[in-house]
Every structure is written in C-alpha cells, then in structure tokens.
Design a protein around this nucleic acid. Sequence first.
DNA 1: GATAAGGGTTCCAGCAAGTGGAAGGTCAAG
DNA 2: CTTGACCTTCCACTTGCTGGAACCCTTATC
Lengths: 132, 132
Amino acid sequence: MNIGDVSARSGLPAKTIRYYEDIGLLKPLRDANGYRSFQEKELHKLTFLGRARALGFTIEDCRALLALYDDDTRESADVKRIANEHLKQVEAKIADLKSMRDTLSHLIDECAGDHRPDCPILKDLSTHKVSN
Amino acid sequence: MNIGDVSARSGLPAKTIRYYEDIGLLKPLRDANGYRSFQEKELHKLTFLGRARALGFTIEDCRALLALYDDDTRESADVKRIANEHLKQVEAKIADLKSMRDTLSHLIDECAGDHRPDCPILKDLSTHKVSN
DNA sequence: GATAAGGGTTCCAGCAAGTGGAAGGTCAAG
DNA sequence: CTTGACCTTCCACTTGCTGGAACCCTTATC
C-alpha cells in the first residue's frame, strides 16, 4: 500500500502519517522508487494512533501505548494506568472549561448588547485580576 | 513602573508582558536607560489581558476586545458578539471532551488492569477507525 | 575601586502536533 | 509525449508563550 491508500483507510492525512514516521512512531518499508510501502501491521498502528489521538492522548502517551500494543507480555495494568491518568486530565480540562463557560455566560447575560458603550463584560475584564 | 512591578501587580510573567508588546498589544514608554516604563493605563490593559486569556479568549479576540475597551464610542453589541462566539466554542470543546471522557471511562471500566496482557482498551484503539 | 546581587535588555531556540507550500521524481493513460 | 495524479524531501508557519545566553544598569558592600 502507498501512503494514499493507508491515508484513506486510516482516515489520517498523508502529511500526518509522514510526520508520525518522522518522530519514530512507525517505520514503513520503501519501494525501489522511494515510495513508502505499508503493510497491514502499519495500517493497524495508524488506525490505533488516529483513535488514540481522537481520544486526546498525547503523542508521548501514544508512543507508550503503541509499545504496549506491540508487547505480547504487557500487563493490562500499565495500559489502564496511562488511560486513567489521561482521564483525570480530561476531567480537569472539562472542569476548567465549565468554569469559564459559567463566567462567560453570566457576563453575556448581563450585557445589553446594544448600541450603547456601557458593557459589563469589559468592566469585568478590566477589574478582576488573574488569580495566580 | 518597571516590568517587574507590573508583572507582580498584573500577575503576568515579565516574559509574557514583553511578548504582548512584541505582538503589538501595548506600547509602554521607555526610560533613558532603555527600561520599559509602564503607566496605570498599561497595567489596566495587562490585567484585562490576563483576565481575558484566563477566560480562554484567543490573542486575536483579546486584540479586538482591547480595541473596543479603548474605544469610548464602542457598541456593547460588538463586545457581546465576540463573547458569544467564544462561548459557543467553549461549549463545543466541553461537549467534545465529555464524549472523550465517556468513552475513556467506559474503556477503563472494562479493563481488568492486572498482570495479564488482555486489554479492552488496546483492542478498542486498534479496531475503531477515526471518524472523519 | 572591585564586585556581587538583582533588576533590566535583546535575540534565538523550542514546545505540541501538525499543516501548507515549493520544487521535483514517478507512473499510468490517452 | 504530455497530462494529471501520485509520491518525495525540505522549510516555514501556526498558538502562546517559555527558557536560556549574553549583555547592560543600579545599588550596596568590602
């Protein structure tokens, strides 16, 4: 398979696949003409990567997960630990965004949104210092 | 005020303040020795920026908001529109993360997390193609 | 007068995770 | 033989900073 085929079948852009090779996530063979030659195994890895990235795992998480995926003697506890840590971060991010959302929608409700210059949104932004 | 003073009072790192000047968000005066010399007005802007960034507005949003903040003839509708668009993006991001979280926590529940290699997490990652 | 600490200055490099584009090689069809 | 769709590499750019190097300014201390 050429890169276009695995791109279509994995759903990942060719550019992204080349990038993944670049950072050492896979090492496809090469044809005589220099084209990358993918085998089913690589396609599986790419699908794996696409899915893991879609779930928000970082590239480094993906690298670790892929190593476990390749390791027949892995312990599922290792996979679960990575997933759990990621889940915690996702949940933290959700909480963060929810707090933003609440503040924002409150401010928006307060703002008349008409032709007058008075604006509680601007007022809030200029008066509440960022909590460090 | 030197950069250290406004850094302490705004809660923003000095590096960030220099960066904001670099991208044209403010233009503090300079002392004879080349040091930046901030006035209260600049401090207000920095506070504004810190707060807006904490609420997740992009730098370009901040630039627009700051221009409105500076404009006495602004219409609050313009501010409200920017805030509303941002709110929509925040809500979309929340929905996205929630969907990730649900999938993740489901997979984690399924995984024994013991010394055996069988792992529903890896199985899922390798079989579900990324939806494009 | 030397020096050390603690400001400040500039510029260059790098992070994540790709994306866009230029310049060019290859292959199959008409 | 040329056209068009592929493929290749390489370099630059994105967002929003952050770290570090190399250097200047000011004040205090010995």
